[in-house]
């Protein structure tokens, strides 16, 4: 199992790590831009309802110097709203322009209040030459409670495990959002800075 496979793995599942709010409100669109040591990507999705989104992602692969697109679908399987919390369970899938033998599927969920956040995810990716799984856990706390329209801040820790290295990698994530814009900044030894910007309209 070489370093190339390891980087391939990171490249393919990278977007999942910093992805949040995968479905918008009914009729809403979302643009996501991501950049890290191995790839730049632009992902646009449209939500016909609050229960699912469909989108296309264009990826510039820095490591392999390649470009490809993915058609992605996310479905809200379950949501529980209470006065002070929300819990979500999502199914996600995608197929690459490289061919029908390159696709992924997975599940991720979260529970959050205005102060606390917890999330998990599991994703299985299949390619012509490699199949692998990835899972993560994420915990966060808001250091202050902002009002509607304020700048909101989350301090988070994410722990992920991949089958290729059979190791847990834990790293900090800072999430900021204001209005319709959200930014997440994470750092890992493996992929260095990982920046994710999201805008809803």
């Amino acid at each position: 199992m070489g370093i190339k496979y390891f980087y391939t793995f990171l490249l393919l599942i990278g977007p999942m790590f910093l992805e949040s709010r995968p479905i918008s409100y009914s009729g809403g669109s979302t643009l996501m831009l991501k950049s890290n040591a191995m790839q730049n990507s632009a992902y646009y999705h449209y939500s016909p309802s609050y229960k699912f989104s469909i989108g296309i992602e264009q990826v510039k692969d820095k490591y392999f110097d390649a470009d490809y697109s993915s058609l992605r679908l996310t479905y809200l399987l379950n949501r529980k709203n209470t006065q002070h919390s929300q819990r979500n369970l999502y199914l996600q899938s995608g197929i690459s322009s490289d061919g029908v033998d390159h696709y992924f599927y997975g599940v991720h969920g979260d529970w959050e209040t205005r102060r606390l956040f917890s999330g998990f995810g599991y994703k299985e990716t299949q390619t012509a030459s490699l199949d692998y799984a990835e899972k993560y856990l994420q915990l966060g706390v808001a250091p202050y409670i902002g009002e509607y329209g304020d700048l909101h801040t989350w301090l988070m820790v994410k722990a992920k495990h991949d089958e290729l290295t059979n190791e847990w990698n834990t790293y900090p994530v800072l999430k900021l959002f204001k209005g319709n814009a959200l930014m997440e900044i994470g750092y890992t030894d493996a992929s260095e800075w990982d920046i994710h910007f999201m805008y809803r309209f």
């Binding site: 409100y25 919390s85 959050e112 902002g146 509607y148 909101h152 959002f177 204001k178 209005g179």
Partner: peptide, 14 residues
Amino acid sequence: SGMVCDFCARGIEK
């Protein structure tokens, strides 16, 4: 209920 963050409440205004 379920209105736990600014970002997810934006759609209500929209």
